[in-house]
Design a protein around this nucleic acid. Structure first.
Length: 347
DNA sequence: CCCGTACCAA
């Protein structure tokens, strides 16, 4: 493994030397590329098990050789991809290299290694290869999740300025980012910006805002806003299970069981097919108002409609029962959970 | 890639 890292380092350093790359960005790229090689390396090692002691050393060298060659090939392809893009060649290899770059960028973003991924982006753009919207959304998502809203905002302006054009998911991601740092006003700004840029907000956009307002306890505002939006923008007539679940949850957490139930009943009347999450919300709602018995009723209803409770359901119930000191019942629920194969967390 | 739920803190 070490050899791969050394070899990879050397070559990436060669590629980047004249660009003055950040060391930590480098490290991240190495790790991500390394992960992608890992499976193959594992395979190589498992073959060595069959060797006799005599041949062991030789086998090890073979393995190392394979690993080195493998890394070299990858890096060569990467480098060639970049330079070919630069001179404008467009062929299969170019496509392959683009795909590879984008795959690395997305992996880096998901791991939160944004410095490295943004460096790769810059590198591609210098070579007149622009990552697509989807890849940009990965960047943006990474920035928003780590609270780097300044950079996120910058990225979106870049997109507006030199492409690729932001789509609905782009704006939704940015909105969510602002909501995460508790800046709902900015999220609302983004919402209007989006509409002005000719991108129609969708159900997800509405849900992000409704959820943010509920969290602030502004339930009336949430509902008003929702109505307003639904009248104009969002695709109507689609299932709004998620929106209703958000509002129901908001009312439960606000202590307004009556309003919360109103949303549930409304869904029932409309014939909405509930899902595990909506059941979890109502079960949690009654548990937190010390009505575990009512929760059980919804639990059995859940089973009847063919839904399988998950970790959320059980954690909710177990926690409520513990708080009431009902140890026997807690154990019972726990054993049911184990038997049903619900994955335990925290172990 | 973008929307909703629980547990808790050595």
């Amino acid at each position: 493994m070490k050899s791969v890292a050394v070899c990879t380092t050397t070559h990436i350093v060669n590629i980047c030397r004249h660009d003055g790359v950040l060391p930590c960005a480098l490290q991240d790229i190495i790790e991500t590329v390394g992960d992608q090689c890992q499976q193959q390396n594992k395979d190589c090692f498992s073959q060595t098990k069959d060797c006799n002691d005599k041949r062991d050393l030789r086998a090890v060298f073979n393995v190392l050789d394979t690993m080195l060659k493998d890394s070299l090939e990858r890096l060569k392809t990467m480098r060639e991809g970049i330079s070919w893009a630069h001179i404008g060649l467009c062929g299969r290899t170019f496509e392959g290299s683009y795909t590879q770059h984008v795959a690395i960028i997305r992996a880096l973003c998901l791991e939160g290694k944004l410095g490295a991924s943004l460096w790769l982006r810059k590198k591609m753009i210098w070579n007149v290869v622009i990552p697509d919207v989807l890849t940009h959304n990965y960047f943006l998502n990474g920035l928003c999740k780590t609270g780097e809203l300044k950079k996120a905002n910058w990225l979106v302006s870049e997109m507006l300025y030199c492409g690729p054009s932001p789509n609905c998911a782009t704006y939704n991601t940015l909105m969510k980012g602002y909501c995460l740092i508790n800046n709902v006003d900015r999220a609302l700004d983004v919402f209007s910006t989006m509409a002005n840029s000719g991108v129609t907000p969708n159900r997800v956009s509405c849900n992000i805002l409704v959820h943010a307002l509920c969290k602030k306890g502004l339930l009336e505002d949430a509902r008003k806003l929702l109505k307003e939006i639904l009248d104009e923008n969002c695709d109507k007539g689609r299932s709004n299970l998620i929106t209703s679940t958000i509002l129901m949850d908001g009312h439960f957490k606000n202590g307004d069981t009556v309003q919360a139930l109103a949303f549930w009943d409304e869904m029932l009347q409309r014939g909405t097919q509930m899902d595990v999450i909506s059941y979890n919300v109502i079960i949690y709602g009654f548990c937190s108002s010390r009505n575990v018995t009512v929760s059980y009723r919804y639990l059995s209803e859940m089973f009847k409609s063919g839904l399988i409770p998950d970790v959320f359901t059980y954690n909710t119930l177990i926690s409520a029962l513990c708080k009431e000191g009902k140890i026997d019942e807690t154990c019972y629920i726990y054993s049911v959970m184990s038997r049903m194969g619900v994955a335990l967390d925290h172990i």
